[in-house]
Design a protein around this nucleic acid. Structure first.
Lengths: 348, 348
DNA sequence: ATTAGCACTCAACGCCATAGAGTGCTAATA
DNA sequence: TATTAGCACTCTATGGCGTTGAGTGCTAAT
């Protein structure tokens, strides 16, 4: 028995209905809504076949059917039609981005917010990873007589800052000199390239004065530490949206889910795994986390100057509206990339 | 009828029991657990009185009683005994703070985490407000030929940073000079004092060269903007803990609650209202938010160099273990203040 | 003042009958 | 041969009903 066009149309009708209602769909409903002008009996026969093909599941005999994970996968790959946002929705997005925004963190938060608002699912986003950004300058700014602020600046702005101790015998002028040397040595390199390899020579040169040797060593440690901590952070929003869905209406299920979703590492992994593709869709068990049963995740990357910098996504029940989510992600992704470009690269 | 010692002891027994079980407490239970050696009948008479005093409530006739908000208030004010943490718990806290920590944000997040872990309620914390910090230096660091990073540094480290546009005719050397002038003019002041009053003179001085006038104006705007945005942020942790409590086991109730708790402004208000007292306890309707029925909030302030900088707190059901929460908040508050002191003020 | 005793209340639970949505099969139909 | 009408069957959901048991509130005895 083959998966002919009619079967696909019936499957599509069932998915459409189930996505709306979360209730098993009966043959009579399909007969009415599918537009195929077939009796419920005929639909029943087809549904029986779809069941055998592993595309439909029944909670129990004599109940309607619901799509299997396999069905959603098939839907996403072959059936789904591209959907578009209406002008209200587009406006809603641009409104969010036209507010005054202070720095990357703010943009990222706004994005998480609007993403969850528009989809009614939970949104997640990781801040841009700046390990590939080019170092421009390293500056040690005195703060008190025994402390200074180490600032690492790249072509996209502030990368890292850390408080370091400075022996009082080192003058402000000397700090400037050290800053300059560090800048000369490391400028143009990437953050990830500040490593042991560059250090020894540099520090021999810097460490010529005995009394500041210890300070120079500490400084080196600090630089290395700063370059290692990736500092990519995860924002989520709208976890409570998930509680509205009947699939999580059992308090125990909901608790487990929220439990899992509070583990930032896990979400970080989910998002960072998918940075190479423009979009990624994981359905149910394709997310290899047993705690996230009945969930799907759709992610998209955002970029600056064409270079992917991070990713964002949406988590909802497997019966999510994939088409709409993709449209929203696509649009927001573009807006976000634009904003980031304006912040960093534009020259007007 | 007066509230004599015996009634108080009975009330205490009921509260103790109810805090544990969340189930209405019957007279027989009190008779057994109160240590008063009274029959259930006697207890019943006393409980009747406590009911008339508004300290006990019954879900329905012929069920046991539970403490009213008034009862919790009385308990907190008069009955509660100070509790102490055991050595395991103290160790658990210090372990969290002995990890490598990168900057204030990290400390704050760790605090939220440990607070929620130890109490099993939801934790909330606001980042230190640094408006009273003393400005030390303002530095404009070139990034590309038309952009620079504006960095505002105080005695406690980095305060603000922002990308600003720089006309290409302004040389790096000139930026240094401007930085120096700004530093001279504003150093020693507080962030909140960067206002129009200081600006005109300063900018007349800076703006002597015609071509850079526009840039100087923009710089002024940026400084003002940076000084205004308070940038105090709210972290919460463990919202899902609340789902474990039977008072929120109804999915609708839980949804409403989580809904409310996702509004950062509201939590910010809750926390910042209570920065003048070392501890603050709000029980039920004392939190004037209709969405937070059945909730109590305990907050504490943390400080640096004796000056209160922010506050943190715990949100849970009204039947929370106030005594334990206070002990935990007290200990964590001390640890947090110590850490912040080490980060900023220590001179070793 | 305290307590034993007892009738009364009320939620919780299990049981059962019923209704209704939906299937799966068979026989009739185009 | 594909489709459909018809019907028995399955299973869940719902509501009514009696029972159970925890707990009160009152009264009379101690």
């Amino acid at each position: 028995m083959s998966l002919d066009l009619r079967k696909l149309m019936i499957l599509q009708a069932i998915i459409d209905d189930y996505v709306m209602t979360a209730m098993p769909v009966g043959s009579r409903t399909v007969s009415k809504h599918s537009g195929l002008n077939l009796s419920s009996a005929t639909i029943r026969n087809e549904m029986f076949d779809l069941k055998e093909l592993g595309l439909l599941e029944q909670p129990h005999t004599s109940s309607g059917s619901m799509p299997s994970e396999k069905a959603y996968r098939l839907y996403v790959n072959r059936l789904m039609q591209k959907s578009n946002l209406n002008s209200d929705e587009i406006e809603h997005i641009s409104k969010h981005y036209s507010k005054k925004i202070n720095g990357v963190e703010d943009v990222v938060k706004q994005t998480a917010l609007v993403l969850s608002q528009m989809t009614n699912y939970m949104s997640m986003i990781i801040t841009p990873h700046l390990n590939d950004a080019e170092l421009r300058r390293i500056q040690i700014i005195p703060v008190t007589d025994d402390k200074a602020l180490l600032v690492i600046v790249s072509d996209v702005g502030l990368l890292r800052d850390a408080i370091i101790k400075v022996p009082s015998e080192i003058s402000e002028h000397e700090l400037d000199r050290i800053s300059e040397m560090l800048t000369n040595a490391l400028s143009g390199k990437k953050l990830s390239e500040i490593s042991n390899s560059y250090m020894p020579d540099l520090f021999k040169e810097l460490g010529e004065r005995r009394e500041s040797l210890e300070f120079i060593n500490k400084l080196g440690e600090n630089l290395k530490k700063a370059s290692k901590s990736t500092k990519q952070e995860v924002e989520t929003y709208g976890a409570k949206n998930l509680l509205s869905f009947p699939e999580y209406s059992d308090i125990e299920v909901a608790k487990n889910l929220l439990d899992a979703l509070e583990q930032r590492d896990m979400i970080y992994a989910l998002l960072s795994n998918a940075t190479d593709l423009e979009f990624s869709i994981k359905i149910g068990s394709e997310i290899e986390d047993p705690k996230l049963t009945n969930c799907s995740i759709v992610t998209a990357t955002y970029s600056i100057g064409g270079r992917p910098l991070g990713s964002m996504g949406v988590l909802g029940p497997t019966r999510m509206n994939y088409s709409r989510v993709l449209a929203i992600l696509s649009h927001i992704g573009k807006s976000l990339s634009e904003i980031l470009n304006q912040m960093y690269l534009d020259t007007d």
